[in-house]
Simulated scan of single mutants.
Amino acid sequence: MTHSILHIDTSIKPEGSMSKTLTRDIVARLQGAHPDSSVTYRDLAAHPLPETDAAWIAAISVPAEDRSPEQADIAALSDRLIEEVRNADTIVIGLPVYNFNIPSQLKVWLDLLARPGEAFRYTEEGPEGLIKGPRAIIAYASNGTRIGSDIDFASTYMRHILGFFGITDVQFVASDHFAIDADSSVKAANDDIAGLAA
Score class of each variant (00 low, 15 high):
Ala88Pro: 06
Phe153His: 10
Asp183Gly: 04
Ile102Thr: 03
Gln105Ala: 15
Thr145Ala: 03
Leu6His: 03
Phe164Tyr: 13
Ile82Met: 13
Leu95His: 03
Ala141Tyr: 00
Asn87Val: 12
Asp89Arg: 04
Asp192Cys: 01
Pro116Asn: 06
Thr156Pro: 09
Gln171Ser: 15
Asn101Gln: 14
His34Phe: 09
Leu110Gln: 11
Ala182Gln: 15
Val27Ala: 06
Val170Pro: 04
Ile93Thr: 08
Pro48Glu: 10
Leu6Asp: 02
Met158His: 00
Ala88Arg: 05
Ala54Cys: 04
Val39Pro: 01
Ser38Glu: 08
Val108Asp: 08
Asn87Phe: 05
Pro96Trp: 02
Glu124Met: 12
Phe165Tyr: 12
Val62Asp: 11
Ala197His: 09
Leu77Thr: 03
Ala88Leu: 04
Phe165Pro: 00
Pro69His: 14
Asp152Cys: 07
Pro134His: 02
Lys132Gln: 11
Gly117Ala: 15
Glu70Val: 12
Phe100Ala: 09
Val186Leu: 15
Arg29Phe: 09
Phe165Arg: 01
Asp181Tyr: 11
Ala46Phe: 00
Ser61Glu: 06
Ser142Pro: 07
Leu6Asn: 03
Tyr122Thr: 02
Pro96Arg: 02
Gly166Cys: 10
Leu112Cys: 00
Arg159His: 10
Ala182Glu: 15
Gln171Thr: 14
Leu81Pro: 01
Lys20Gly: 05
Tyr157Thr: 01
Asp169Cys: 05
Leu112Ala: 01
Asp181Pro: 10
Glu70His: 08
Ala179Gln: 15
Glu15Trp: 10
Gly126Ser: 07
Trp56Pro: 00
Val97Tyr: 04
Ser104Trp: 02
Pro69Arg: 11
Ile82Glu: 10
Ala54Asn: 11
Leu162Phe: 05
Asp25Thr: 13
Gln105Ser: 14
Asp150Glu: 12
Asp111Val: 07
Val85Cys: 06
Ile57Asn: 10
Asp150Asn: 07
Val170Asp: 03
Ala189Leu: 12
Glu51Arg: 10
Pro103Ile: 00
Asp152Ala: 00
Ser175Tyr: 01
Arg135His: 14
Ala174Leu: 10
Gly148Lys: 06
Ile26Phe: 06
Gln105Phe: 14
Ala54Tyr: 03
Gly163Met: 01
His177Pro: 01
Glu124Asn: 12
Ala179Lys: 15
Val27Phe: 06
Arg86Cys: 12
Gln71Trp: 10
Ala59His: 03
His7Lys: 10
Glu84Leu: 13
Glu70Trp: 08
Ala114Lys: 08
Ala64Tyr: 12
Ala55Met: 11
Ala198Pro: 06
His160Ala: 12
Glu84Gly: 08
Asp36Ile: 05
Ser155Cys: 10
Asp150Met: 13
Glu124Val: 10
Arg42Ser: 06
Ser175Gln: 07
Ala197Asn: 14
Ala154Trp: 02
Pro116Thr: 09
Lys20Leu: 07
Tyr41Ser: 09
Pro116Ile: 09
Gly195His: 08
Asn99Gln: 11
Ile138Lys: 04
Ile5Tyr: 03
Ala198Val: 13
Ala198Lys: 14
Asp66Ile: 05
Ala182Phe: 15
Pro50Glu: 05
